[in-house]
Design a protein around this nucleic acid. Sequence first.
DNA 1: TTCCAGGGGTAGA
DNA 2: TCTACCCATGGA
Length: 299
Amino acid sequence: MTTEFTITTPPDFRFLPTVWSHGWCYLPPFTCSEDPLTVGRTQKLNDGTIIHFHVQETQDTGDLLVTNRNETTLTNKQQAEIAMVIARCLNFDADLSPFYTLIETLPTYGWITQVGAGRILRSPNVWEDLAKTLLTTNTTWAMTIGMVKRLVTLGEPAPNGGHIFPTAEQIAAFDPDTLNQHVRAGYRSAYLHQLASAIAAGELDVEVWRDPALPSNEVFKALKRLKGFGDYAAGAMMRLLNRFDQLGLDSVCRAMYAQRYNGGEAASDREIAAYYEPFGRWRGLAVWLDVMQEDILSG
DNA sequence: TTCCAGGGGTAGA
DNA sequence: TCTACCCATGGA
């Protein structure tokens, strides 16, 4: 049995650049396929139902079509909850208008406004984004995918295969060595276990970091206090929290800057920071869109 | 064996 | 706050 329903998107929302804003769509419990571009996700609803839904853009209106194949038809309440999850993942709430106004004065960045880039795909909860970000540190993207896939097998299974993302409580319940045997995250496993334990014990409230009323410098400091989160990982997490005043430089950013802005020569982080200074509190978004430009435009 | 990846931690200045 | 140095894993 198939349930279909549509979601109205914000006027400045664009599906493709949001889905391809970074590699998150390739990390389970997200799924991603092309022609037509479709993002899926395995998710547990508040009533305990575990489903896998798909989202794609409607041709005419730019709204989103949500599809779920299940044994029973989704109730209105379930559909409303899924719509909220999608709105959160696709970052409907982001207000990018000040950023778009800023880059109007910068000719080479006109593509961003033209395609409506700037929203970044994220997980429904901060814990999942933290865990995934930790697994991007000091490793290749291919290995990140492998680690996340193995981590997700520890989550509750879905009826049609796949798993939901494991809760912090589930991860905390492992002893660190056993966790590492499953995830094969090496030294990161201890950091992951420590993070999960702090959240599960109620010592750490990471969801509050989404609150715009909380100053970004305080959020960044809190992120940096987490084991395994240095300037890169904390800065990358800031982007996922719609906070862009940190650059979050990694080897991909540095390679992009060298190739595009420095004649192929490596530049110091200080030089890179100086280049992005005119973007002010949007600098973290500017550097990341520079990295993703080709992927987004070729999509 | 060596190097590297979407680096991080720590000591010392 | 900044730098130098050492640390970790797994794959090529």
